[in-house]
């Protein structure tokens, strides 16, 4: 009861922190996709380069986030800029890996048919490879987004704002109501995002495409083809 009182008297502050949190995460995810998607596509052209790139983003992933923030402070100071850079780096592994494996695993028969029908390399990429792996790419983005929501919480340590502020302040002042007021919204945000993106992912899966659901509606909107 005491918690609810605490929560509702501070809902404006919590709402502001939630928005900050979403903003930082969203900017980071968009940038991570803008960088990761082309990198993931490009490395499908060369096995050696792919191995090296995947190895590097793998290493980044193993650096503890608090350490990475620490490393970025001397270069970029504090605030949400170094936080976003760190988040973008953490987002690379799931995105690049999914784009790469998705495109690499497109049914070779489909590619042969596409080539045999006279599609150019770019047409095959845009009309066959990416649409056919869209759900896998979305899966990578989902994993990255959920992870970044979590890491963004820690980023408040270096002044990125967000719900992490409440959690850390609550811990240092031993105010558990404050801790929970930050932790519960962050957990719900992560769960809700995961669920929403998973739904999107499923509707984009070509194997799930059938008369039911959005795919059919889309076909109808396009007048049958």
């Amino acid at each position: 009861m005491e918690f609810f009182n605490y929560f509702f008297t501070r809902y404006e502050q919590i709402g502001r922190l939630l928005l900050e949190h979403v903003e930082v995460t969203l900017i980071a995810v968009v940038l991570a996709v803008v960088i990761g998607l082309p990198v993931g596509i490009l490395i499908t052209k060369n096995e050696t380069v792919a191995k090296i790139v995947l190895y590097i983003v793998g290493i980044i992933q193993t650096v503890p986030s608090i350490a990475l923030f620490g490393l970025l402070i001397p270069i970029m100071g504090i605030g949400n800029k170094p936080a976003i850079v760190a988040l973008v780096l953490y987002g690379q592994l799931p995105i690049i890996r999914n784009v790469y494996t998705g495109i690499k695993n497109v049914d070779p028969a489909m590619l042969e048919a596409a080539r045999g029908m006279g599609m150019t390399g770019l047409q095959i990429l845009w009309r066959v490879q990416i649409p056919a792996t869209f759900s896998i790419i979305l899966g990578g983005i989902r994993v990255a987004t959920v992870a970044l929501i979590g890491i963004a919480t820690i980023a408040s340590f270096i002044g990125a704002g967000g719900l992490g502020d409440m959690i850390f302040r609550g811990i240092s002042t031993i105010n558990f109501n404050m801790v929970l007021s930050g932790a519960i919204p962050v957990a719900l945000l992560a769960l809700g995002t995961d669920y929403g993106l998973a739904l999107l992912e499923r509707s984009a899966d070509p194997m799930q495409k059938s008369k039911k659901g959005s795919a059919h509606k889309r076909a109808q909107d396009q007048g049958g083809y």
Binding site: M110, A113, M117, G118, R127, V128
Partner: peptide, 22 residues
């Protein structure tokens, strides 16, 4: 070669229909 292939019908055993297209 691209123009050549567009003017030759091509059918393969695995068919290679695109699953994301109607």
């Amino acid at each position: 070669p691209i123009e050549l292939r567009r003017n030759i019908g091509y059918v393969i055993q695995e068919i290679g229909l695109f699953p994301h297209m109607t």
